[in-house]
Design a protein around this nucleic acid. Structure first.
Lengths: 222, 222
DNA sequence: CCAAAAGTGTTAGTGATACACCCATGT
DNA sequence: ACATGGGTGTATCACTAACACTTTTGG
C-alpha cells in the first residue's frame, strides 16, 4: 500500500501555554541547526508507527520538555508542501494548558535551550510557527468563552482575582470585577475553601477550587 | 530524513453536506472491496506529494464526485494506529457545503456507487467514519450559531422559510417564525430581491440573496 | 491611621422568548 | 369561498453593562 513516490513525514507539534507573572506564556525551543538556526520553534517531533497522535504529543512533551499537561486538544493540521524546506512534513498541532506550578525544571532538555515567551512579545519563529501560535491563541480565546478550559492554567486553589486576571490576560481586555464574580457564581463552577491567601498589607483573598462537573456551557462565561 | 521504519499514509477525506428535500444529506460511496466491503464511506484519497491538504480535498471532490464546493473547511485529523486494518493512515478530514443546485450528475464516478444519505438515517459505515460524521455534524451546528456558513447550502435566491427550514433541519429543532425573521433582519445579512416564488395555492414568498460582507458574528444567529 | 487589594448591589438597557392573526394566491 | 403557506408586532423576562463604596489587613 505504501509507495516510493510518497515521502511524507507525519509530525506533532505542541503549543504549550501557561500563565506566569500575569502574562500568557508559550514554551519555545531555540533551534541549534539549520534550517532556521537560532530561531525559536514550538516543541514537536515525529509520530511513531504505533502511537496515536495524542500519545505522540504527550510523549514529546514528556521527552522534550518533561511536562505532564492538564489539558491537551488537537488544534489544526498544517501541511503546506513547502512549509519545511527539508521535505514534506504534515504537522498535526496540539495545544496544551498547564498550571504554572506543575512545571518542573525541564530535566529532559538534552542541552536544548527552552524558554517561556510572552504571547504578546514573540521572537522570530521558525517554519510557519507564527501562524500556528496566532491560531492557537485564537482558539484559546474562543474556548474561554464557552468552556472552563482556562481553569487548567491556574493552581488547584486560586483567588477570584487570579481567575479574573487569567481571563483578562488571555482576552487582552479588562473585565468588571463585580460582574465577573456575579457570573462565575451564577455558573456554579467554583467551591469556596476555608483557606485564604495573604499577599501584602491588605485584606486576604478567599481561595476557591474548581468544580469539574461542567466543561462547556450554553451561555457565555465572559 | 525519511526512514523505512515509518510507513504512514496521509489521506484526506471529505464530509460533503447538502440540503435536499428539507433534510440534511451527506454524500457516501459504497465500498466495492474489502476491508468493509459493501459498507458506505465518505469520499477521500491520498494526498499527492506536492499539493496542499486543501487542494487534495478539492481534487478528490472533483475527481471522485465531480463537485465544486462552495465551502470547505478542515475538520479534524484522525490518526488512531488501527483505524485502517491495511496500515497506518493519517486522515485529515475536511467538511464541505454545497448548494443542492450546484450538484452535477457525478460523471467522474468510475462506476462507483454514490448516494446522498440523510444524516439522521445513516447506513453502516466503514472505518471510523461514523465518528467522523458525528463530529462533522457537531461542528456544523456550532458554526451555524455564530457564522453564516449555512447560506452556502442554499441556492442563490431563497425564501425566508427555506432559510429557517435549513436551520431547523440541521439543528433538529423548531424555531419561531417571527423571532427568526426579526433576528435575520437585525443582523443585516440578506438583501430582498424584486422576485418572488410561487409554490402552490397561497401567497408567493419573497426571494432574498445573501450579503456576503459578514461571515462571523459576536452575537448568536440562532 | 494609611495604603492596598478584597469584597459587595442596584439600576438601566438590550436582547430573547412567547404568542395569534391577517394576507395573497390558486383552485 | 376555502385552503395554504407568507408575512407581521407587542409584552414579558432574563441577562448584560455600568457604576462606587466599605472591609480587612500589615506596616
Amino acid at each position: 500500500m505504501s509507495d516510493e513516490k510518497y515521502k511524507m513525514i507525519v509530525a506533532v507539534d505542541i503549543v504549550l501555554f501557561t500563565i506566569k507573572e500575569n502574562d500568557l506564556k508559550v514554551l519555545l525551543i531555540k533551534r541549534l541547526h539549520d534550517p532556521f538556526k537560532e530561531m525559536w520553534a514550538i516543541p514537536g517531533g515525529r509520530v511513531e508507527q504505533n502511537e496515536s497522535l495524542k500519545a505522540a504529543a504527550e510523549r514529546e512533551l514528556s521527552e522534550e520538555v518533561n511536562v505532564k499537561v492538564d489539558y491537551l486538544e488537537q488544534l489544526y493540521t498544517f501541511g503546506e508542501p513547502q512549509r519545511d524546506p527539508r521535505g514534506r512534513v504534515i504537522s498535526v498541532v496540539y495545544y496544551a494548558l498547564v498550571s504554572s506550578d506543575n512545571i518542573k525544571p525541564m530535566a529532559g532538555s538534552d542541552a536544548k535551550e527552552f524558554r517561556w515567551h510572552s504571547m504578546f512579545k514573540l521572537p522570530k519563529l521558525a517554519f510557519d510557527h507564527k501562524e500556528i501560535l496566532d491560531y492557537a491563541l485564537q482558539r484559546l480565546r474562543y474556548k474561554l468563552g464557552y468552556t472552563t478550559v482556562g481553569f487548567e492554567l491556574l493552581q488547584e486553589k486560586f483567588t477570584l482575582t487570579e481567575l479574573q486576571k487569567m481571563y483578562e490576560t488571555i482576552l487582552d481586555k479588562q473585565l468588571d470585577k463585580r460582574n465577573f464574580r456575579k457570573k462565575i457564581f451564577s455558573l456554579d463552577i467554583v467551591n469556596p475553601t476555608l483557606d485564604s491567601r495573604m499577599e501584602g498589607p491588605h485584606r486576604p483573598a478567599k481561595l476557591y477550587t474548581f468544580k469539574k462537573k461542567y466543561l462547556t456551557f450554553s451561555s457565555d462565561i465572559v
